[in-house]
């Protein structure tokens, strides 16, 4: 079953909160909608909350990285928030380190990070 991740708009920030494990096509769907909305909403930042995700595989990580880079090209910043301890550990063991992409503990810290920058 396809899952559509809601993208909320909070001021000039877009928040996509992923609530369950996504299949590959769901992630691609999220990617295209975020890239649309960045321009449509004149967002200066996108926060992707992955705190409810138990597994981030290489495809998910790769797509998240792609989202972040392409959002940057469209003039906004991406912060990935809420990576859980065991997810972080297994990502690192797979060599997936989200290089150059800002991360934060949770939504709160993510918003603070954007506000500060």
């Amino acid at each position: 079953m396809a899952v559509t991740v809601p993208i909320l708009r909070q001021g000039s920030v877009l928040i996509a909160s992923i609530q369950e494990d996504l299949c590959d096509s769901d992630i691609l769907n999220l990617q295209s909608r975020i890239l649309e909305d960045v321009i449509k909403c004149r967002a200066k930042a996108v926060i992707i909350d992955v705190s409810a995700i138990g597994v981030l595989d290489s495809f998910g990580t790769k797509t998240l990285t792609e989202i972040a880079y392409s959002v940057k090209m469209r003039g906004a910043e991406t912060v990935i928030v809420g990576i859980q301890p065991d997810v972080a550990l297994s990502m690192v063991l797979l060599g997936l380190t989200l290089r150059d992409i800002p991360t934060a503990l949770d939504l709160d810290h993510g918003l603070a990070l954007i506000g500060g920058s």
Partner: peptide, 12 residues
């Protein structure tokens, strides 16, 4: 190094 990379993934 992995610990520190993982800590960064968690935003620290």
């Amino acid at each position: 190094i992995q610990s520190m990379a993982a800590a960064r993934l968690m935003g620290a």
